[in-house]
């Protein structure tokens, strides 16, 4: 089955702080069809995202499919609190690449 990386289907894949202890990821599509392709593929789930980041499933704090906005939202507990020792991304805005590269099978 053919598969394409998420970044070729979604229009925006972003990461950002949601408070000092969480990072939230948004996958946004302009076209409903693209959103549905991603949503219906089953490729993006709390379990698969955890695996893509080497996290335990319990580190995924929430997962939403938001049909109204053609969006999927995933939030993780950050391994290091914002601004704590050794933490390297104060705004949490450069953590999106493993998600962007996840493969979505095409039917």
């Amino acid at each position: 089955m053919a598969a394409r990386p998420l970044r070729e289907i979604a229009d925006i894949v972003r990461s950002k702080n949601a408070g000092p202890y969480r990072i939230t990821f948004d996958i946004l599509c302009r076209e409903k069809a693209n959103y549905e392709t991603i949503r219906n593929s089953g490729a993006i789930t709390p379990e698969t995202v955890a695996r893509a980041y080497g996290l335990a499933p319990s580190d995924i704090s929430s997962f939403f499919e938001i049909d109204m906005a053609n969006a999927i939202k995933i939030t993780i507990r950050r391994p290091r609190a914002q601004g704590s020792a050794g933490e390297g991304d104060m705004y949490g805005c450069q953590q999106h690449v493993p998600l962007m590269n996840m493969l979505v099978p095409l039917r």
Binding site: K16, T24, D26, S62, F64, I66, A69, K73, T75
Partner: peptide, 13 residues
């Protein structure tokens, strides 16, 4: 506007 409603927050609802 709807995309911005998701920005920087965990629960969109």
């Amino acid at each position: 506007v709807s995309a911005h409603s998701l920005y920087e927050r965990e629960n969109p609802f």
